[in-house]
């Protein structure tokens, strides 16, 4: 049978502690095509980060399987590079060394020393961070750290790029700038991307499809919304675009009318 590029099949996740078990995810199934940009949106606590960790292989699903190009995913690996929410750069390495560590590990056998250096620089160029290559993470801003995190993930040439609320900790202007950069990189490299977000505009702007999760416990996929907007997308023009507004209100209605988070006041 023909499977899609990345397939999540009947994922259940149950956390057990001290005899009580909480079901976090229930029967989550999703098919993703190669080159697609998928956003997963939902209120906090709906298990969207858990879902991403399962795809990354960092967490084992209680039931269900993730297939990538037809083979089962059960361990973390550089074919599913993660951009972590808090960038997770190693503070004792420079910007260059952080990316180089990933490049050396993934291409240590297949590329020469010079090629690995060039590839590291090439990925820093993609996020426009070559100028700070010898700086340490503590010496650069939050937005810059996240860009280096993206460069590190891209440098692994992953089959799927997993973004875990990558811009959550950034101010609005930096965030917009990075969103544009991610769109540009996606246009250039055509990566398959799964992004966790809680920002409606971000989801509509970047995604081909938006996966909306119901509230936990036992969160499910409530709805999947197609975003039929032409690329390249420009945020300024989209503000008044009817398709954009329709998608945006679709997500808003899902989040704030049908699946309002009751305990959040």
């Amino acid at each position: 049978m023909s499977k899609s590029y990345l397939a999540l099949e009947q994922i259940d996740m149950v956390f057990s502690r001290d005899g009580t078990s909480t079901q976090v995810l229930k029967q989550v199934s999703l098919n993703i095509d190669k080159g697609e940009f998928i956003s997963i949106i939902g209120h906090s606590g709906c298990g969207k980060s858990t879902l991403l960790n399962i795809v990354a292989g960092l967490t084992q699903a209680t039931r269900g399987v993730v297939f990538l190009e037809g083979s089962v995913v059960d361990l973390p690996g550089p074919d599913r590079a993660v951009v972590f929410q808090n960038h997770s750069l190693l503070p004792w390495l420079t910007v260059y060394e952080n990316v180089k560590l990933a490049v050396d590990k993934v291409f240590g056998r297949t590329k020469s020393r010079q090629e690995r250096h060039d590839w590291t620089i090439r990925n820093l160029e993609l996020v426009q961070m070559v100028h700070a290559r010898d700086k340490r993470p503590s010496e650069i801003s939050g937005g810059m750290k996240q860009r280096v995190g993206i460069a590190r993930a891209l440098a692994m040439e992953p089959k799927v790029l997993l973004l875990d609320e990558p811009f959550g900790a950034l101010d609005a202007l930096t965030r917009a700038h990075l969103q544009d950069q991610v769109m540009q990189i996606h246009a250039e490299l055509a990566n398959t991307v799964i992004m966790i977000t809680h920002d409606v505009d971000e989801a509509v702007l970047l995604s081909d499809r938006i996966v909306m999760m119901t509230n936990g416990p036992a969160a499910r996929i409530g709805e999947v919304l197609d975003v039929p907007l032409e690329r390249p997308r420009r945020r300024v023009e989209l503000v008044s675009d009817p398709t954009y507004l329709r998608c945006r209100s679709g997500v808003l209605k899902f989040l704030y009318e049908r699946h309002r988070l009751m305990e959040a006041a």
Binding site: A56, G57, P76, G77, P78, A81, V82, F84, L101, K105
Partner: peptide, 12 residues
Amino acid sequence: QDYQNVARVLRL
């Protein structure tokens, strides 16, 4: 945990 996750994704 972040550093451990980085190590696991990179398969160090």
